[in-house]
Design a binder for these strands. Sequence first.
RNA 1: GCCGGCGUACUCCAACUGGCAGAGAGGCUCGGCUUAGAACCGGGACAGUGCGGGUUCGAAUCCCGCCGCCGGCACCA
Length: 952
Amino acid sequence: MSTETGTGTSTAPARSADTPFRYGAARADEIERRWQERWAREGTFFAPDPGEPGSEREKVYLLDMFPYPSGSGLHVGHPLGFIGTDVLGRYLRMTGYNVLHAMGFDAFGLPAEQYAVQTGTHPRATTEANIVRYREQLTRLGLAHDPRRSVATTDVDFYRWTQWIFLRIYESWYDDEQRRARPVAELEAEFAAGTRPIPDGRPWAELSVLERRDLIDSFRLAYVSEAPVNWCPGLGTVLANEEVTADGRSERGNFPVFRRNLKQWMMRITAYADRLAADLDRLDWPDSVKAMQRNWIGRSEGARVQFPVVGAPAQIEVFTTRPDTLFGATYMVLAPEHPLVEQIVPGAWPVDTDARWTGGAATPAEAVAAYRAAAARKSELDRQESRDKTGVFTGAMAVNPVDGQAIPVFVADYVLMGYGTGAIMAVPGQDQRDWDFAEAFGLPIIRTVAPPAGWQGEAYTGEGPAINSHNDDVSLDGLDVADAKRLITDWLVGRGAGEAVVQYKLRDWLFSRQRYWGEPFPIVWDEHGPVPLPDDRLPVELPDIADYAPRTYDPDAADTEPEPPLSRATEWVDVELDLGDGPRRYRRETNTMPQWAGSCWYYLRYLDPHDEKFFVDPEIERYWMARDPSRPGDPGGVDLYVGGVEHAVLHLLYARFWHKVLYDLGEVSSEEPFRRLFNQGYIQAYAYTDPRGAYVSAEEVVEDDTSPTGFAWNGTPVAREYGKMGKSLRNVVTPDEMCARYGADTFRLYEMSTGPMEVSRPWSTRDVVGSQRFLQRVWRNLVDEATGETRVSDAEPDDDTLRLLHRTIAGVHADFRALHYNTAAAKLIELNNHLTKAGVAVPRSVAEPLVLMLAPLSPHIAEELWARLGHENTLAHGPFPVADERWLAAESIEYPIQVNGKLRSRVTVAADADREAVQAAALAEARIAETLAGREPRKVIVVPGRLVNVVI
RNA sequence: GCCGGCGUACUCCAACUGGCAGAGAGGCUCGGCUUAGAACCGGGACAGUGCGGGUUCGAAUCCCGCCGCCGGCACCA
């Protein structure tokens, strides 16, 4: 490889005979590859761990949401965030920080498996090929990652520790009193010692071995349960709530999802609902993401109230946020799946039962059975689509505890088993859903909050004084909603009929999938239930099997059963193991973990990627992640996490949950994984369709005034739409193309300069040339295009140049820190334009800071120019210019002069002039004096350094 | 329906705690040079901040009411 410093000769093909040393794509390519090789060779971006030289510097841990290595490679939208973190990391490294920045791959998951099924290759082969391709693409961009720390979730050495963490969660329970997770061994010890009562009241010693096991299992944070889950026949797997869209379809593939009772692995994330919600206040995250998480966790305060059932030894417990409306409860509703339904249904309809209530059935049992069957057949989608109120009377009556009234109990699917207690008291006067149901079934409506005068609506949910709300003992009448809630709750508590509670919408996390390409569980089954494998049996490797395709079904076949591909690996599944009580036969767990598992902790593995003793060494974790005692309430964690907003509730909630468990167990020192989160915008693109609606190649579309749409493709008018970049939309632009046409430095600079990081914006290939021109001008200012000689002068820059230089330095520092790369780039362009216009050789004392400031954005050309300026070492570790205060203050200031807020004139005054002097100068200025014509202004406002406003 | 966010030249975007609406890029246009018809050099034009009020000496910025767009949640009791 030819090295080219000083007056070296070019190997790059030149466009022009006159300017063989011009900066262009070919030269950029040569420079970039050479420097990338050198960085790799010298380990320039290795981040020292505690104890290693360099670790005494202040540390910064920057993190990107690691990509899923898809088969189609990167398009120009993907690296936006990666480049953004890289710019910050390079800037911080140059200013003296120990920066940790690494990149890994989230490589388990559905698409690899689906692609593998289509092509007949093993998912591991396609995944590894994709990772190689991604690494090439990312390396080409000159990202300053520590290459030693790259991990993929599919590496056996990585998922071994994913399994290890699973076991820690499995071996834990949540102590509600101490509000933290603890090992189940401690729970068992408390039961055995009698310091913690056993739910059924018996002493521990009287429990059989299996009873003890069931009891402990019921406390675990990872547990198996038979519960309603989201079954997606089209994908052949069950899904977490977070993976199902609002309209009851799978986020991936858009297949219908059905609620089915299935035995699956769950994680008790609900135990952490309060901490997950409360600790959001301690995070430096975008408000929108915090709002989404709060919304998902769904904390609401209210009361639980018991309603005794007439003639049955049962109570219906409801949750309500409006206990103040209890006097208006005129009926009750149980969810169709509610277990109490069977117990309360009487043998026959009460006399005079309204015909509308029976569903035409002869007995309540028949009516309920028919209704339940119909409800079970409905997909989530059907249930969402029709909001008409349906239901049947159970034949049972319940007693309203506040007034002793017997009210009818219905079953209706507008009440969901998964929220609250699965039962409600219905208050049509103050709830529109109940109002609709009451209208449909002819039920009474009592208002207990007075609506405002002239109220035309139906249910009134707003504020107002309570009415119709008293019994012999207590009266809410006249109280506002908040006071009424307090009073009636106290009254219920006093009567033992209710209690104040906090309710969450969040449900436990469904953690198993019927997939091949995921982490196997470190669990085997004996004839009784699950048995954890000891740590020294890890990793449980994914076996190679011939047929790894998931068993999928007709998307609407709700009654099908999930079938994990691993269940076909019979030799792997049936094992004989000695787990401490002699060799026994076991059956391995054949489900695999969801894709989210690896991403719940990968950021910890970057810290200590090759450790065989720890998932992360505690000392290393403390160095990079610990809480900052100088910041009150700081939870610790990654210093900056950058990624798209699409993971607001999925990955970001799951990772917080795992991290908190690890914190409770003493495995990490930080309470949160990501102390600061930043959502970068998306790069979007135009797509074009021809009159038949088919997408045409966006690159070949031209603006055309003769086309009714303004755009044409091969002479055909095409319609433009704006959105994502995608293969099927035929508008993909790849970083590879951009690097080939302009170079990585130009591409990076373009992406950073079109707008602030958080803003989504359209991709525009033709604009990229602007960034190329700037780099070309910088190059031309420092390198003779004809001879290749570096040309800077040793002359002192003039004062104007020095002022601009130092203003630029100060501004660029602030911009980089604030992630305002677009304005940093603008300031550098401005400085360079100034140097160009000066028309003289650039003074070295200006050229060097310019090159250094450019380095975070366009590192290769900066390194090259730095070397050509005579420096042997990389600029990756600085120096970075520091602004000189003396040159930040202007000598004189031009004050705009406003008259009554309108700009009328200007006056130039010495920078150190005081307020009076500025005022005097302004009033003496010719146009202002003329306007005043001898009158005294009513008022003169002088804003030092800003402007003068004369009020007449 | 509820909760977020955003509206500035033709386009993408600047404007610190209210203080000269314009930093930067593209496009357009004129000229130079010319091998430059998306990579050359130099010059130029183009808006008054979605709409209507209010506060203020002064509002893109703060407040109120609309309009439009984007995102999230949604039979959650």
